[in-house]
């Protein structure tokens, strides 16, 4: 990609239909990036907040879990930002876990038959979606709202 293509290129390289197998490959990388950055930073923040005591843990909770009753507009806004980030990290965790399991199977040399490869790619997406939804509903019912 480094050099500019001044010669004519065959157009067939740019014409293709997206498939679940292609999507899961790039999603594995994107979710890995999210976990490595946002995920690890939240994990470190959580550990430091536990060590920092009840007050610093309350600050962590105000942002990531629930801004609470007397929250300012800014606190509520940041809370929603971090909630969305937390959902992204959670989804990334399950997606990366399931697509990672798929990669471990592929690394043994199995699962390359066209139908099997496609089926397991779709299965990993579905499993990640439901696992994320389950945890979000669990957290929402237990810690957020009335």
């Amino acid at each position: 990609m480094g050099q500019k293509a001044s010669r004519p290129l065959s157009p067939h390289l740019l014409i293709y239909r997206w498939s679940p197998q292609m999507a899961i490959s790039i999603v594995h990388r994107v979710t890995g990036f999210i976990l490595s950055t946002a995920g690890m930073l939240v994990l470190l923040w959580w550990l430091a907040a536990i060590g920092g005591g009840a007050e610093s843990y309350a600050i962590f909770k105000t942002y990531v879990v629930n801004a609470g009753e007397g929250a300012t507009a800014l606190e509520t806004a940041s809370n929603w930002f971090f909630r969305l980030a937390a959902i992204a990290v959670l989804y990334s965790f399950f997606q990366h876990l399931f697509s990672g399991l798929r990669h471990l199977v592929l690394d043994t040399g199995a699962g390359y038959e066209l139908n099997a490869n496609r089926t397991w790619a779709i299965a990993a997406f579905i499993a990640a979606f439901f696992a994320t939804a389950l945890v979000v509903l669990f957290v929402a019912s237990r810690f957020i709202g009335a």
Binding site: M40, L44, L47, I50, G51, G53, A54
Partner: peptide, 20 residues
């Protein structure tokens, strides 16, 4: 740096106890 920070955060709780 992340590893060192995380290990320190856990070690602090174990050896010095969490803050109040």
């Amino acid at each position: 740096a992340g590893t060192v920070f995380g290990v320190f955060a856990v070690a602090k709780i174990v050896f010095a106890g969490a803050g109040a």
